[in-house]
Amino acid sequence: MTVVLGIIAVILGISALCAVYRVARGPSILDRVLAVDVLLAIVGGALAADMVFNGHTNNLVILVATSIVGFIASVTVARFVTEKK
């Protein structure tokens, strides 16, 4: 159990680092917004893992809410980029 928790933490940590690298590196704002989306998904995964290991469902609301409204940020940026010329 603890071993699996460690493995998952390492995997999610590496993924988050890759995403943060892409946010810092760019090259365009669309790449960054994409990487932030991935970061959000990784955080969601961490919340889910927390729920599983500690046996509660307190974070479920956050998962539902982000799966409903999480797409708005990237749509906004995409529209902004397209309209600006």
Partner: peptide
Amino acid sequence: GALMSLAAAV
């Protein structure tokens, strides 16, 4: 699930 996150990041 964690591996899928890794796939996205890689």
